[in-house]
Amino acid sequence: MSEPRLRILMAKAGLDGHDRGVKVVARALRDAGMEVIYTGLHQTPEQVVRAAVDEDVDAIGLSILSGAHMTIFPRILELLREQEAEDIILFGGGTIPEDDLQELKRMGVAELFTPGAYTQEIVEWVRENVGEKAAGGSAAPS
């Protein structure tokens, strides 16, 4: 049998086109042995969540540098709940001021990385938080 691997959806939501960070992180996760599904730019929350469900990913990594984080993150959490997919972990990155960051975490965003974060830090976080949950609570029979 093939080894179960972490599947991570990397997405850009909203209208900004800054994809340097999302691509660097995608490569780092790939190099750490994960399967990364990239959605491309300019996605709506609906598109992101649908892709996450169809692709049965363990987590969504969302990059927002447009200042729309307080709109888009909560919307994605809401849609995940609607799709009975709350077990898909939502994390993200971007230019997010400290108080917004705390507020988003309260709402249910698992972790947020701000400019200057190391990719290794992100990889480690995914391994520890997503990996653990995926190993312990997968609904797939195995």
């Binding site: 209208l15 900004d16 300019h42 709506t44 447009s66 200042g67 729309a68 307080m70 888009i72």
Partner: peptide, 22 residues
């Protein structure tokens, strides 16, 4: 702002949360 840069009006759904932001 991003909606203007993408040729999207402020009342379009895609502009949600981005009007006047950057």
């Amino acid at each position: 702002d991003n909606p203007t840069l993408m040729g999207v009006d402020s009342d379009d759904l895609r502009a949600l949360g981005e009007v006047g932001r950057t």
